[in-house]
Structures are given as C-alpha cells and as structure tokens.
Computed example of a mutant assay.
Amino acid sequence: MASLGTSALLDGLREQVARIEGQGEGHNRPVIPFGIPALDGGLPRGGMARGALHEVAGAGANVEHASAATLLVAGILARGGGPVLWASERFDLFAPGLAGAGLQGSRVVHVEAGSSVLLAMEEGLRHPGLAGVVGEYSGRLGLTASRRLQLAAESSGAMAFLVRRGPRLNDLLLSEPTAAVTRWKVACLPSPPPLAHSPGTPGLGRALWQLDLMRCRGGVPGSWTVEACDAQGRLALPAVLADRPAAATPGRVHRRAAPGRAAA
C-alpha cells in the first residue's frame, strides 16, 4: 500500500510540473499571434498563449517606457476580444490611451487594488467570464505567487499579464525566476519621419518600440524593432526593416550590438 501511495504522489507531482512547464492540459491553448512572422516564429505555436501568465516591463522607470509596456498589453488583449479585469495599485489607468491601442473602455473593469494586486488578479483569473486579467505591480513576484497565477490562468483559460512597475526597474528585478510563460521588456525608440522617402518633411511617424523577449518557455528569446500598436492593437515592421530577410524569416531576429562592440 505504501508503494501505491508513493506512486500516486509522484504521478500528482509530475502532473503539476507538466502544467507549470506548459506540457499538460494548457499546452494546447489557443494563441493570439502578432501577425509578424519574425516575431511569431519565436513563440510556441506562433503566438501569445491564452490560459497562461505573461510578464511585461518597460525598459526603465521613465514614463514613456512604462506606457509602452501598458499599450503592448492593451493591443494584445484588444485583438483577443472579451471583457478584461485591470488591477492597479493606484487609480491612474488612462482609458483613452488603451482605446488608442484598440482596447475600448467598455470592455475594461478597472480595480484600484493597492497592495493586493496579485490577490485581485488571482480572483479574476478564477472567474470564468473574463478573457484577460492584467495586474500592474511594483513589488517582488517570486515563484509561489507566480505559480498561483499561472495555475489560475490555466484553469479558466484567461490570458494573464503582469505589468512590472518600479522606481528603479532594471534587469535585476526581471531576472528573478517566475512561472510566467513569457517575459518581455519594451523600450521606446525615436520616431522616424512621417514619410520614409522624404526625411525632410516635418512631423513624426508612428512610434517605434524595441521588444525584447527575455524568456519564453518552449520558444526562442530575441529582440525586434516594431511600430507601436495601431487603433486595432496591431504591430508592424518599420518600412526600413520590412524587406530585410532577418525581419521576414521566422525564428531569426535583428539583434542590436552592445555599446562598444561591433555587430556580429
């Protein structure tokens, strides 16, 4: 009997590990593709998985980077459809900004949760009527809390996003191990001229972002330069990169050279 009990315990542990690693029931969840082959080619099944936890952060504490991270999440959820619960520590969510990325205010329930953002997220993820749950969080995450969110997302099928905030956000905060399926960093880049063929024309073109996929379970990390979300939540390749093989071939990325180094 003891042997049977041990075997059952091991089977249960294996099932839990499989769920956390994305190899259990949640492995076949549908995805939301970006529509850019080079970007989707680095992701398992060609897109952002539903029923999973995703981690997104700005490249620094500056407002423009934090806003880019928020708009990236809004654009993905805009294309996914359904109601969204958005929990933040303060009541500072700018609804017109989300609408500019395709996520209309009529779809969003905003909760000012203070220090209980993770709890609000977990409760929302266990609600069967939500398509997405977002939490803006400035504290440490850790494996235990992130595993609870991942398992709750798998259970309901909702897409979960944890938007990392912090006064001194850096790579050390994002190097902590978590159960998130993907981990993204978003940085704003200088906008190009409005007309690529006429650099002297006054004005600014569509905003540019650098997307860094820092971790992806079952995928390929990489870095891409993209145009920011439009009013339908869609990204695009800049015109100067759209015809380059590195940007058009799945699984390949356009990498930036580190300061002081020559590009490989």
Rank of each mutant, 00 (worst) to 15 (best):
residue 156 S to K: 02
residue 215 R to K: 15
residue 16 Q to K: 11
residue 229 C to E: 06
residue 85 L to I: 12
residue 54 H to E: 05
residue 18 A to V: 05
residue 122 E to A: 10
residue 33 P to G: 10
residue 47 G to T: 02
residue 157 G to D: 03
residue 231 A to M: 13
residue 14 R to M: 13
residue 243 D to Q: 14
residue 221 P to F: 00
residue 199 P to T: 10
residue 111 V to K: 02
residue 259 P to V: 11
residue 170 N to R: 13
residue 25 E to R: 15
residue 88 S to W: 00
residue 99 A to N: 07
residue 169 L to V: 08
residue 102 G to P: 03
residue 244 R to W: 12
residue 98 L to N: 02
residue 183 R to M: 08
residue 197 H to W: 11
residue 113 A to M: 07
residue 7 S to H: 12
residue 123 E to S: 12
residue 232 Q to C: 15
residue 90 R to T: 12
residue 134 V to P: 05
residue 73 V to H: 01
residue 174 L to E: 00
residue 153 A to K: 05
residue 55 E to K: 04
residue 250 P to E: 10
residue 47 G to H: 01
residue 116 S to W: 09
residue 70 T to Q: 15
residue 94 F to E: 07
residue 75 G to Y: 01
residue 127 H to G: 07
residue 92 D to T: 13
residue 4 L to A: 13
residue 7 S to T: 15
residue 203 G to K: 07
residue 201 T to N: 08
residue 73 V to E: 01
residue 173 L to F: 10
residue 119 L to F: 09
residue 58 G to V: 00
residue 248 A to F: 06
residue 131 A to M: 00
residue 5 G to Y: 07
residue 135 G to K: 01
residue 27 H to W: 11
residue 158 A to R: 01
residue 50 R to T: 14
residue 222 G to V: 04
residue 46 G to P: 12
residue 248 A to T: 13
residue 141 L to I: 15
residue 216 C to L: 03
residue 122 E to T: 10
residue 244 R to P: 07
residue 116 S to F: 10
residue 163 V to C: 11
residue 172 L to T: 14
residue 160 A to E: 02
residue 32 I to T: 14
residue 117 V to Q: 00
residue 168 R to N: 11
residue 73 V to D: 01
residue 3 S to F: 09
residue 89 E to D: 09
residue 167 P to Q: 02
residue 141 L to A: 04
residue 202 P to N: 03
residue 4 L to T: 11
residue 176 E to F: 08
residue 68 A to R: 00
residue 44 P to H: 02
residue 83 P to M: 06
residue 176 E to L: 15
residue 120 A to E: 04
residue 249 T to I: 12
residue 65 H to K: 05
residue 259 P to Q: 06
residue 71 L to T: 01
residue 186 V to G: 01
residue 143 L to N: 08
residue 46 G to V: 08
residue 80 G to A: 03
residue 199 P to V: 06
residue 124 G to E: 09
residue 91 F to L: 10
residue 166 G to I: 01
residue 98 L to Y: 00
residue 95 A to S: 14
residue 81 G to E: 02
residue 23 Q to K: 15
residue 245 P to W: 02
residue 1 M to T: 11
residue 70 T to C: 12
residue 194 P to G: 01
